[in-house]
Amino acid sequence: MNQRIRDVLIEHSDSIVETWLNVMGQNREDHYTAISEDLYELTNREFANVIFANINGDKTTRIFEEFSERVINLGWPLGYITDGLSAYRRVSIDYIISLETSQNAKVNSNIAAEIDEWVTPIIRHLVNSYTGNWENIVSLQRVALQELSAPLIPVIDQITVMPLIGTIDTERAKLIMENLLDGVIRHNAEVVLIDITGVPVVDTMVAHHIIQAAEAVRLIGSTCILVGIRPEIAQTIVNLGIDLGKFSTKSSLRKGFLAALELTDRKITDLKETEESIGKIIDSIGKE
């Protein structure tokens, strides 16, 4: 950038920033009314510092990354950055032209090109930082969602539940299989309840994946019970000719849990009845 233009930008930075803030204030009224005025102005001033850090020769890579991450955390779109820099470009060009005109100086015909030389790298770096941070956040969210999409929950000793919600595709079916086998071994589960209450559609592919998962569980020495089979799902399974006879099925999680208790030689007992039985035994012993 031309040294004179650089000096003018730095010398009159306060005036340029204030003019730009007014432009951005109008931009808020048009596009960001949901954002509080104080937060918007505070972020804009931080934005201005980021812009001028570049012209001052500061190390800007970390500054760009931190600011773009802040914008993402605020939930603001990439357009906030690009619109802000475009506005800064226009304000700077207009200010320098106005200043040179008022001083009867010869207006530099290359002002726009000189300003572009300053602003364009900032746009590139901030956009790259924003998209990089965004992709990283999306990647972390995808991993978190995958972990939550097929959880294996240990209910009591030897019994675990895997509640499935939403559509099951090939990628998710693979994750279900991995989590299921890993969880059965980790929790030393004898019975696994696969709850499909929240699965909207059970077609041939979904049924095939469930059968594969149940068979894999059987091969490592545990029992699989499929629960949450609604009437419409049962009808679909019958119409498609899908054979689920290799493992137990129940209409609800409650019924499946009772079956799991039986398989592990346990049952639910009424505490009051148990107390009465124990009392009778004690009484009979006392009489003897």
Rank of each mutant, 00 (worst) to 15 (best):
D169H: 09
D169M: 08
D169T: 10
T170M: 04
T170Q: 12
T170L: 05
T170W: 02
T170G: 14
T170H: 08
E171D: 14
E171I: 07
E171W: 07
E171F: 05
E171G: 10
R172D: 15
R172S: 13
R172F: 13
A173L: 13
A173M: 10
K174Q: 15
K174C: 15
L175G: 13
L175H: 15
L175V: 15
I176M: 12
I176K: 01
M177K: 11
M177V: 13
M177T: 15
M177Q: 11
M177W: 08
E178P: 06
E178F: 09
E178I: 13
N179I: 12
N179Y: 03
N179F: 06
N179R: 05
N179H: 07
N179V: 04
L180Y: 05
L180S: 14
L180I: 13
L180K: 07
L180H: 01
L181E: 15
L181A: 10
L181Y: 05
L181I: 12
L181W: 01
L181R: 04
D182S: 14
D182Q: 11
D182C: 14
G183D: 04
G183S: 10
G183M: 05
G183K: 03
V184P: 04
V184I: 13
V184D: 06
V184R: 01
I185V: 15
I185E: 04
I185S: 07
I185Y: 04
R186S: 12
R186Y: 10
R186C: 11
R186N: 12
H187D: 03
H187A: 00
H187G: 01
H187M: 02
N188L: 07
N188S: 11
N188R: 11
N188D: 14
N188H: 10
A189Q: 04
A189R: 01
E190F: 03
E190A: 07
E190H: 05
E190V: 06
E190I: 03
V191E: 04
V192K: 00
V192M: 06
L193T: 02
L193M: 01
L193F: 03
I194A: 03
I194F: 04
I194V: 13
I194W: 02
I194N: 08
D195T: 01
D195S: 02
D195L: 00
D195E: 05
I196S: 02
I196G: 06
I196Q: 06
I196N: 09
I196V: 11
T197N: 03
T197C: 00
T197V: 04
G198V: 15
G198E: 13
G198A: 07
G198H: 02
G198C: 09
V199S: 06
V199N: 08
V199T: 11
V199M: 07
V199G: 03
V199I: 14
P200N: 14
P200Y: 12
P200K: 10
P200F: 13
V201Q: 09
V201F: 10
V201D: 09
V201M: 13
V201L: 14
V201G: 08
V201Y: 06
V202F: 06
V202P: 08
